[in-house]
Design a protein around this nucleic acid. Structure first.
Length: 657
RNA sequence: GGGCGCGUAGCUCAAACGGAUAGAGCAUCGGAUUUCUAAUCCGACGGUUGCAGGUUCGAUUCCUGCCGCGCCUACCA
C-alpha cells in the first residue's frame, strides 16, 4: 500500500510539473521525513528545480503545493524547511486499507524465474559460508514467490571436479578402503564430517610429497570418463554427501526443486552443443601459439570489447578448453546457462532424489531419467547466488551469452553476489586452531575446506538448538519434551537465519559464536518474541488473533481511526500502522536491489516499535472499550505483518517463548 | 601491475537516486516489573564518516589523488 501511494504521489507531481512548466521529469525522488510529525513522504524536488526555473526553492514548493489539488489517500501537501514538500497521508484511510490487507500491485511481470543457490561441492560437510549462501538464496526465493513469481530453485552439483576426486583419493590411497567399506561408512549419520576430516588429510598428504598429486589426476580422469569402479565410488560418495547437505538445509527449511549435476553436463554432451555455438559465433578463439597454445580461449569479462576478438592479449585470455581437450568449469557453466535459458537444444534426464516432509519432491539430473518428470529450465530470468570471488567467472558467462547474440538473456542474468563468511581470530582460537602472530592481528580469517578450517553448519545448528533449549527449559518446565524441543528448534532457526540476513551482501561476516548465539537485541528471537507477546494478549483475552482484524473491520468507524491516530498523541501508534503498510514496498525494494537485508531491517523495526508499544499500553486493562478494541486491532495488524515478514525470511514463530 | 569491494561510535553493522539533527545492536554505567512473560523497555556515555582536494544550495553517498585492508587476477573449481 505504501509503495502504491508513493507511486501515485510521484505521478501527480510529474504531471503537474509537465503541465505548469513543460518539464518532463524522468524520475522523482521521494523519501521519508526524519519524523512522522512532518508527514509520510518528502520531496526535495524544489531544490533541484530552483536552478532550472530561476526561482527560490520555497516559492517553487509553494506553487506545487498550492496548485496540485487533492490526491486520493492524502490529507495534503505542505512546504517545510528550506523548500521540502512534505506529504501527509489520510491516516484513517490507510489504516483501513491495511486492516483489510488491501494490496494494490503495480503490474507484476510474470517471468518464469530460476534461482540457483547453495551449490556446495559434495565432498565434505557444509560450513557457515554455505549457510550464508543458502539462507540468502532461499530467502530471495521466498521474496520472489511472495510477489507472485513462479520460481524454480536449483542447486548445482559439481560431482566430477577436483574436490570430489580428492576425497576419493583419500578413501582409496590413504585409507585403502574398498567400495563396500565406503558404502558402509556412507550410511553413518554424519558421513560428511568423516569426509571433512579426510579431505583435510588428503591436502596434507599432497603437501608432504608432490608426487602424491598424480593420484588426483588419475582419479579425476577416471571420474570424467565414467563407467568404471573409481567413477562409481565417486558417485557413491558425492550422492551420500549431497544427501547430507540436503538434510542440513532441510533443518533450516531450505528446499530445492532440482539438482543439476556436472556429470550429466559432461555425459549428455551439453558442452559439445555449446562449443559448436561458441566457435561458430567466434566467441571462442583457438590459440596456435603463445602461452595458451593449443587452447580455446575467450576474452576475460570486464574488458574493452571493441577490440578485435581474434587478437586477445595473453593476459586478457580466459582458457575455456585446455590444450589436452578437456573443458574448464567456465565452459561447462556456459553450457549450463544456455540450458537454463532454453537455448541449448538439449535437456537433462530427471529422476526423483529427495522427498521433503511436506511431500515436495526434489529431482536430480540423470543420464537416463524417469519418463514422467517436470521440466526445469527454459526460463526468462535467472539469479545465481554465488560469492563475490566468482564475479569474474560469472561475468565471463554473461559475456559469452551476450556475444552469442542472446542480449535479452544476458540482461536477465543476475549474479547475486555476496561476501564470504570468515572467522574472527577469537573464534578460530576457540576452535583449537593455532594462529600466527599475523593472523591474530587480522579482523577475520578466511575459512578453508581444504585445511578443514571452519565451523560446520550442523555443529552451529546443534549449538544454537542446545542454547535455545536451555532457555526454554528454564522458562517453561511444564511443557512436554517434544514441545520444548520444537520451540528451541524454531528459535535456533530464527536466530541463525536472521543472523545471516541482517548484514548487507558486500559486508564480510566475521563469524563469532558469541554474536551468532545471541538471542537478544537485533536478532531473530527478538522479532519472534514480539509476535509471541502479541499472541499472548489475544490468548488472555480469549480472542482469535488470526481473525480478530477481519471480524471487527466493519465495526470500526473511520472517525475512530482518525481519533486514535490523530497527529500529536496518535503519532506513536500511527508509526506502527505506517510500518505495517510498508511490507510489500520493502519486499519490492529487496528484490529490485537483490538485498534481503532490507527485509530483515524491516522485521526488526516492526518488532522494535511493537515492543515499545507493548510496554506503553496495557491493553487488557484498558477501561475504554472502543479504545481497547482499537489497540487490539493495532496488535493484530502488526502481528500479521511480522509473521508475514518473518515467514519471507523462512522464520516461523513458536507458540510461546 | 590490473580488476572488484571495503574503511562510519570501544566492537559488529545501518543510513532508499546526493537532502532536514549520521542511526541501531553489543559492551559499559544508571533506571523500570502488584500489570498482556524482563529473550522486554527507558536513559546516559560514545562520531573531524581513513586522509587531501573537487563538483553541488547541500556529500557518509558522486569525481580525482593518496593511505590501509580483503578478494580476484591458474591449461583449479
Amino acid at each position: 500500500m505504501y509503495g502504491h501511494l508513493q507511486r501515485q504521489l510521484a505521478e501527480r507531481v510529474r504531471q503537474f510539473i509537465a503541465r505548469a512548466h513543460n518539464l518532463e521529469l524522468a524520475h522523482i525522488v521521494i523519501e521519508q521525513p526524519p519524523q512522522v510529525e512532518l508527514g509520510e513522504y518528502a520531496l526535495p524536488l524544489a531544490f533541484e528545480l530552483a536552478k532550472k526555473l530561476r526561482k527560490p526553492p520555497r516559492s517553487i514548493a509553494e506553487e506545487i503545493v498550492g496548485g496540485i489539488g487533492k490526491i486520493d489517500g492524502f490529507e495534503g501537501l505542505e512546504v517545510a524547511g528550506a523548500g521540502y514538500i512534505n506529504a501527509r497521508l489520510n491516516r484513517a484511510e490507510l489504516a483501513q486499507a491495511v486492516l483489510s490487507d488491501r494490496q494494490p500491485r503495480a503490474g507484476v511481470v510474470a517471468r518464469k524465474t530460476l534461482v540457483e543457490h547453495s551449490s556446495i561441492n559434495p565432498n565434505k560437510a557444509a560450513h557457515v559460508g554455505h549457510l550464508r549462501n543458502a539462507i540468502l538464496g532461499d530467502t530471495f526465493v521466498r521474496l520472489l514467490r511472495l510477489t507472485g513469481r513462479q520460481v524454480d530453485v536449483q542447486n548445482y552439483i559439481d560431482n566430477t571436479g577436483v574436490q570430489v576426486a580428492d576425497v576419493v583419493v583419500g578413501f582409496l590411497y590413504l585409507e585403502k578402503k574398498s567400495r563396500l567399506d565406503i558404502e558402509q561408512l556412507s550410511k553413518q549419520a554424519r558421513f560428511d564430517y568423516y569426509c571433512w576430516d579426510l579431505y583435510a588429510r588428503v591436502s596434507e598428504w599432497y603437501e608432504a610429497d608432490q608426487s602424491h598429486r598424480e593420484a588426483r589426476i588419475e582419479v579425476l580422469r577416471a571420474i570424467e570418463a565414467g563407467q568404471n569402479e573409481t567413477a562409481n565410488i565417486a558417485e557413491l560418495i558425492s550422492l551420500a554427501v549431497l544427501r547430507r547437505h540436503l538434510e542440513t538445509m532441510d533443518r533450516l527449511h531450505i528446499e530445492y526443486d532440482f539438482l543439476p549435476r556436472e556429470s550429466e553436463i559432461l555425459h549428455l554432451n551439453f558442452w559439445d552443443a555449446a562449443f559448436r555455438k561458441l566457435t561458430a559465433a567466434g566467441v571462442l578463439v583457438y590459440q596456435s601459439e603463445g602461452k595458451n597454445q593449443g587452447c580455446w580461449v575467450m576474452r576475460r569479462a570486464g574488458l574493452d570489447s571493441r577490440a578485435d576478438r581474434r587478437e586477445i592479449r595473453e593476459e586478457d585470455q580466459k582458457v575455456i578448453v585446455r590444450s589436452n581437450g578437456t573443458v574448464g568449469y567456465v565452459g561447462k557453466d556456459i553450457a549450463y546457462h544456455l540450458w537454463k535459458f532454453g537455448l541449448l537444444g538439449r535437456d537433462f534426464g530427471y529422476r526423483k532424489f529427495y522427498l521433503y516432509a511436506n511431500q515436495h519432491q526434489c529431482w536430480i539430473s540423470s543420464t537416463q531419467g524417469e519418463p514422467d518428470h517436470p521440466h526445469f529450465g527454459s526460463v526468462q530470468e535467472i539469479y545465481n547466488v554465488i560469492d563475490a570471488r566468482q564475479a569474474e567467472a560469472q561475468n565471463t558467462v554473461i559475456e559469452a551469452l551476450r556475444e552469442l547474440g542472446y542480449k535479452q538473456q544476458a540482461d536477465h542474468y543476475t549474479h547475486f553476489s555476496y561476501e564470504m563468511v570468515a572467522l574472527t581470530p577469537r573464534c578460530a582460537a576457540e576452535l583449537g586452531y593455532e594462529l600466527s602472530a599475523e593472523d591474530k592481528m587480522r579482523s577475520h580469517i578466511e575459512v578453508s575446506g581444504r585445511k578443514g578450517f571452519g565451523v560446520k553448519a550442523d555443529d552451529l545448528i546443534d549449538r544454537l538448538i542446545a542454547s535455545a533449549r536451555k532457555e526454554v527449559d528454564s522458562r517453561h518446565p511444564q511443557l512436554t519434551l517434544d514441545e520444548r524441543a520444537s520451540i528451541a528448534n524454531q528459535i535456533a532457526v530464527g536466530a541463525l537465519r536472521y543472523f545471516m540476513l541482517k548484514y548487507t551482501k558486500p559486508s564480510v561476516i566475521a563469524f563469532d559464536f558469541k554474536e551468532a548465539l545471541s538471542f537478544e537485541g537485533e536478532t531473530g528471537p527478538y522479532a519472534q518474541y514480539a509476535v509471541v507477546r502479541a499472541t499472548n494478549i489475544f490468548r488472555k483475552a480469549g480472542l482469535d488473533a488470526e481473525h480478530f482484524g477481519a471480524e471487527v473491520r466493519h465495526n470500526i468507524a473511520s472517525s475512530e481511526f482518525s481519533q486514535y491516530l490523530a497527529a500529536g498523541a496518535g503519532n506513536e501508534i500511527w508509526e506502527l500502522w505506517l510500518a505495517s503498510a510498508k511490507t510489500t514496498y520493502v519486499v519490492e525494494q529487496a528484490i529490485a536491489s537483490t538485498e534481503p537485508a532490507y527485509v530483515a531491517k524491516h522485521a526488526f523495526q516492526l518488532a522494535q516499535l511493537f515492543n515499545n508499544f507493548y510496554h506503553c499500553h496495557h491493553i487488557l486493562s484498558e477501561p475504554d472499550e472502543a479504545r481497547k478494541r482499537f489497540l487490539l486491532v493495532t496488535v493484530a495488524v502488526v502481528r500479521r505483518e511480522l509473521i508475514r515478514v518473518l515467514s519471507a525470511m523462512g522464520i516461523s514463530v513458536p507458540p510461546v517463548m
